[in-house]
Structure formats: structure tokens, C-alpha cells
Amino acid sequence: MKIAVYGASGYQGKLVLAEAIRRGLTVVLVGRDAVRLQHAAAAVDLSSPDVRVAPVDDHDALVAAFGTADAVVNCAGPFAPTGAAVVRAAIAASRHYVDTAGEQPYIKAIFDTFGVQAQAAGVTVLPAANDACVPGDLIAALLAERLGPLEEISSIHLIAGGGGPSRGSLRSVVESIDIIMVGGLVYHDGDWRVGLPPRKTSIILPRSAQAVPVAKFPLPEVVTIPHHVQVRHVEGLAEAALAARLSVPIDPSIISGLPEGPAEQARATQRFTYLIDAVALDGRRARGVVEGPDTYGTTAVIAVESVRRLIADSAKPGVLAPAQAYDPAAFLHSLLPHNVRWTVQEGEEHTAGN
């Protein structure tokens, strides 16, 4: 099984390379700079690497590079300016595609643009194979199975520690600052909109009576969930302090002088909690909780597992949300060895992966 990693020399790209090699997959390193790709190969102890130079604006080079593998993982953020070209090349090469994007407008654009093309090519395109979107989307499917048609879903992100964002993440924030400042897209009555007020301004943490202030935030699962869940309203929220920090414009000139990303020791201190709260049309409520360490490391695990399953098991062609491509409980259980725990609770009922 061979995967082409586009953006292999970046911070997230090297983590995906390392995870793919750990899983016994063969990798093709693809990017615009041969020297940086060689350095990336050395960083993951890869001898005799298969390196393919393919700038994002060279469609033929991308198609040729991707054609040497079974599928493509795109880690080259920010995705808004370049991601569509990589998707187009993967489809032209008849290769399945996943990426690690978290940029909400980009993810919606991929669903809006490439569905017919991917179906015609017989390939699956799955954007946002990251630490938050995949578990959140899969949990939403499990909640809908329990409750039936839903009035609303709120997805809430809480992250502590970790040593700060990578340069690529900061560049994605710069690219997405306009949508961040307005709180992101909200799904309501069959379409995605901006400007709707949040339905929640605080949440109660699991196993605690503590209320945490939250604010609207452009989360990727707001785009993916309505593609498979019958729901009237979906909104994304983050801890208010985090949303406020990321709403302040960043001077792009300072990013290149920052560390490439958090050190491994810092990542080991990070903990995330993602809450997916659902309300049925009849008022019944349920909550899904996903908890784990190291958002960047978990993203690498999820991206590799996502592409591995597409190659090994296939899914229907087209642009898909995670729950349309994978069995939700089976995928979530695959994350347990990586210390990602999940629960789904309705009333006193309890379903757990721990």
C-alpha cells in the first residue's frame, strides 16, 4: 500500500510520513522543493526516499506524482489558495484523496465543486481528515442513530496546552481571518449562513459542574455533518478565550520567524476535549465526548487511517463526509490505542470507547 504525501516537508506532513511508515505503508514525498523533501525523509529516517517535485501550479507533474501511489494525503496548508489544484490532480490521476484541512470555507468549496468529477473518476475525496472533524462527524452520526431527526447539533472545541500552533496553522488562520472574525458558517434550514447568533454562550464540562464561556467558531464539521444527518441547525463553538485570540489579525511577516511547530515534549502536554451536543425534534438530548492528546499527532493518525481504509475497503465515489465513508464506531475504536477516548450518552444510557 503506497500513499503520496503532498506537502511532505511541512510540520504536519512529516508527522503523517512518520505515522505512515510506522504503519508499514510505502510513501511518496511530493512537494515543490527537492531539498526540503530530502530533509523531511531524513527527519523520519527514510532511506532511499521516493521524492517527486511537483509545484502546485504544475498539474501534469502533480498527476504524474500521484499516479505512482494508491492514494493522496494533502498536508500543505493553508488549503484555500492551493488545495483545489491538488484535489483536481488526484481526481485526474484516479486516486483517492484525503487532506488535513481545517479551513471551513475551503472544505465547503470542495464539497460544492468536486462531487461530480470524483464520481465520474470513481474516486473518493475526503477533506478535513483531522483530529476534530473526523471524530466529531462520526459521533454526530451515532447521536442521530439514537435520537432520529435532530433540531440542532452544537460542536464545541476545548484545547489546553500543546506549545502553540505550527507555522502552517497560523498561515491558515491568516487565510481564514475574515470567516473567523464573523464566527464562521452556521448550517440552518438547509443552507450554510453567516451572521446567526450562537444558541449557546457557555457549556458544562464533562464530569464537572463548571461552566465554560464559548463563542462561535468556524469548525469543519459544521460543513460535513449536514451531508448525512437530518438536522435543522448545526453550529461550531470554541472556548471563548481561544476564539478571541484567533480573531486578532496576525502579521504574516512574523510567522516565518517562528518555530516550525510545537516540540514533541510540548505536544505531549496537550489535551483536547470535543463535545457534540444534539437535541432531537422531540426535545430529547444526547452528548458525544471525544478526549485525547496531541492534536497534530492525532491528526496524523486519523489521516493515515482514513486513507488506509479508502485503499483497503473503498467507499462510494464522490466527495464524502467521514461518516459516509467509514463505519463510525469501528473508526472511533481504531483510535483507542492512541489514547483517544469517546463516549455517547443519552439520559442514563452510556456507550463508551474506553
Rank of each mutant, 00 (worst) to 15 (best):
P252M: 05
S253N: 14
S253P: 07
I254M: 15
I254A: 14
I254Y: 14
I255R: 04
S256D: 15
S256W: 12
S256H: 14
G257V: 10
L258I: 00
P259E: 05
E260M: 11
E260W: 11
G261W: 03
G261V: 02
P262T: 02
P262H: 07
P262Y: 12
A263Y: 10
A263S: 13
A263E: 11
Q265I: 11
Q265T: 15
A266Y: 11
R267W: 10
A268W: 10
A268N: 05
T269N: 05
T269Q: 09
T269C: 07
Q270P: 04
Q270G: 08
Q270D: 10
R271K: 08
F272I: 10
F272W: 00
T273C: 06
Y274C: 11
Y274A: 10
I276W: 00
D277G: 11
A278V: 09
A278W: 11
A278D: 01
V279M: 13
V279K: 08
V279Q: 08
A280N: 01
L281C: 07
L281P: 00
L281M: 09
D282Y: 15
G283Q: 02
R284T: 06
R284F: 04
R284C: 04
A286M: 08
A286Q: 02
R287M: 08
R287D: 06
G288E: 13
V289Y: 00
V289H: 03
V290I: 14
V290S: 06
V290F: 00
V290L: 12
E291Q: 12
E291W: 03
E291C: 07
G292W: 00
T295H: 01
G297L: 03
T298E: 03
T298K: 05
T298Y: 03
A300Q: 09
A300N: 08
A300T: 09
V301R: 06
V301T: 12
I302L: 05
I302S: 02
E305M: 04
S306F: 02
V307E: 04
V307Q: 00
R308L: 09
R308Q: 15
R308M: 11
R309Y: 00
L310C: 08
A312W: 07
D313G: 12
A315D: 04
A315T: 06
K316C: 07
K316A: 15
K316Y: 13
G318Y: 14
G318T: 07
V319Q: 05
V319R: 04
L320P: 01
L320K: 09
L320F: 05
P322K: 11
P322D: 13
P322H: 12
P322V: 14
Q324F: 00
Q324I: 09
Q324E: 14
Q324A: 12
A325T: 08
A325W: 02
Y326D: 10
D327W: 04
P328G: 13
P328H: 05
A329Q: 15
A329E: 12
A329S: 12
A329N: 10
F331P: 08
H333D: 15
L335F: 01
L336N: 14
L336A: 15
P337W: 04
P337R: 03
H338P: 10
H338W: 08
R341T: 15
